[in-house]
Computed example of a mutant assay.
Amino acid sequence: MTEKPEIISFAARLRTNFLTGMIICAPLAITIWLTFAFIDWADSWVTPYIPERYNPAYYFNITIPGMGLLIAVICITIIGFLGRNLVGRSVVNFGESLLNRMPLVRTLHKSLKQIFETALKEKSNSYKTVGLIEFPSPGMWALVFVATEATGEIAAKLNANGEEMVAVFMPPTPVPTAGFLMFVPKSKLKILDMTPEEGAKLLISGGLVMPDWKAVDSAMTVTGSNSKVTNKKAS
């Protein structure tokens, strides 16, 4: 006895086509919207400070999207170029010395500068490894980004029992821009093979976008003078 082929109703086909269209169009539309929203935000900050004789909109009587963003990028690049020579460094150091004398401003400036230097440093080793820790209770696992091993005072206070501690950052879902900095025993940390980008996609999607994975042997090793925790894959 042969089985009859399943008949798909017109409504089911219509729903499938609609969901397929949503999968194609929604990410594209959101990407375009966010891009233009960022361009408009940058233009609203920069364009009012552009002299009229240097603003193309003054001559052509039309608004050129992205002109403010382009000028901001050019100005930031020029400032970076000037800040790398002797005279520029002297000016920057003088400005920072003035900020460092202001009680509240110096704390904010130092914190922001340290964050940007860490995030934008070309050879930064921060958050290159993804792992799992048991949180909030045994048997439940949370995704974390591994920073480095505990050093200094924290290492002296936490490593008293001989267990090496590791600094990890645990962001929430679906916005991984905030979270908790925690120090956990290295033995309690499970290193994953996925990249930080794949880990971020997993967090933002709420667990829906799982990265592809092939079984390999992973082990934690400590390399470098800063004792960074890295992922070693056995061939």
Results as ranks from 00 to 15, higher is better:
Ser218Leu: 08
Ile191Leu: 15
Leu203Pro: 05
Val229Met: 06
Pro136Arg: 08
Ala29Asn: 01
Ser126Trp: 13
Asn61Glu: 14
Gln114Ile: 04
Pro196Leu: 07
Asp193Phe: 00
Trp33Ser: 12
Phe145Ser: 06
Leu104Cys: 07
Tyr127His: 09
Val146Arg: 03
Ala72Thr: 07
Glu164Gln: 13
Asn93Cys: 06
Pro48Cys: 07
Val46Lys: 01
Tyr49Met: 06
Leu104Arg: 10
Asn159Asp: 15
Ala234Gly: 00
Thr31Cys: 09
Leu120Pro: 03
Phe10Asn: 12
Ile154Trp: 07
His109Asp: 13
Val175Lys: 10
Gly199His: 07
Pro172Asp: 07
Pro185Gly: 05
Leu120Val: 04
Thr107Cys: 08
Phe116Asp: 10
Glu96Ile: 12
Trp141Thr: 10
Thr151Ala: 10
Ile78Met: 13
Glu198Thr: 05
Ala178Thr: 13
Ala42Ile: 02
Ser124Leu: 10
Leu69His: 02
Phe180Asn: 12
Gly139Pro: 04
Phe60Pro: 00
Met102His: 10
Met220Gln: 06
Lys121Glu: 15
Val144Asn: 05
Phe10Ile: 14
Met67Pro: 00
Ile76Thr: 13
Lys201Leu: 07
Ser126Tyr: 14
Gly83Cys: 12
Gly224Phe: 05
Thr177Tyr: 11
Asn61Leu: 14
Leu19Ala: 09
Met194Gln: 06
Gly80Asn: 12
Leu104Val: 15
Phe183Gly: 02
Thr47Met: 14
Ala200His: 07
Ile115His: 09
Val184Tyr: 03
Leu104Trp: 13
Ile204Thr: 02
Ile76Gly: 09
Phe116Trp: 09
Val222His: 00
Thr223Asp: 03
Glu134Tyr: 08
Phe38Gly: 05
Asp193Asn: 12
Ile204Asp: 02
Glu122Ile: 09
Glu96Leu: 10
Ser225Tyr: 05
Leu108Met: 12
Ile191Phe: 08
Lys233Ile: 10
Gly88Thr: 11
Lys201Phe: 02
Val46Trp: 01
Phe81Gly: 10
Phe60Ser: 07
Phe116Thr: 15
Gly206Ser: 08
Gly224Gln: 00
Thr16Asp: 12
Ile39Ser: 01
Val184Asn: 03
Pro51Thr: 04
